[in-house]
Write a protein that binds this DNA or RNA. Sequence first.
DNA 1: GCCGTGTTTCAAAATAATATGAAATGTAAA
DNA 2: TTTACATTTCATATTATTTTGAAACACGGC
Lengths: 123, 123
Amino acid sequence: MTKDERYQDASLPLPPGVEESLCRCGGIAGLVEQLPDDTIFEQDCGLYRVLADPLRLKILAMLAVQPLCVCVIKTVLDIADSKLSYHLSVLKKAGLIAGDQQGNWIIYSLTELGSEWVSGHGK
Amino acid sequence: MTKDERYQDASLPLPPGVEESLCRCGGIAGLVEQLPDDTIFEQDCGLYRVLADPLRLKILAMLAVQPLCVCVIKTVLDIADSKLSYHLSVLKKAGLIAGDQQGNWIIYSLTELGSEWVSGHGK
DNA sequence: GCCGTGTTTCAAAATAATATGAAATGTAAA
DNA sequence: TTTACATTTCATATTATTTTGAAACACGGC
């Protein structure tokens, strides 16, 4: 048994500790097999990108208290209409909130996904 | 008792449903009181920003299998050294991973925070 | 129909994050 | 001390996200 047969990744010089445990899990190939498909990472990071903004987190927190129309959210955040509308659209596209037109107003509330996330987060 | 006394936010015309429930929780002022401080949102969104990248999520998944040196991660991800180094630094700065120099190599592993996050995520 | 109000859309400008490649750092071994 | 190797740093280019303000849209009341 040559070194090349024992270690799938003999081409890559490694520190002893890593080489050993890596070998035990099937080398680099074995490691890769344990990973989810790349599309999963893309998908997951999509949600994180949506959450990666303080205004959006605050909007979610507000809607966790109760459904609100845009004008109330705007009053609390004190930002321009179009800016708020942009962030609402990001949250909506991600399926975290939904808007319900009621006369002149649009009342936003958390979707099921949205409330799952909020509660699963300890806020 | 005038309308202005009953409703703190009488200045802002609201749809009936929202006005009612908002009034019950102390108006806009009451709503704001229930929200965490802005610094909390800033802080939380910092973590989400770090997680908002597929490469970084994949690196975390790899390190969840076992500690690895940069060259192994690089082989799996197949990206340029400096690019990998950049993403490692982002993860390190966020306290999700830590590097341990061992001879010529640096072996990265999940920190406690890092493994908490990975396991609390069902991956 | 025409207003007034609440909200969204659009294109452009401003800002932030990421990618790239060359040069630098640090380490071990000769 | 020179060399080879693993990794990082730096400056710059590229790309993605956010902001801004004007215009458009949708709804209800006159």
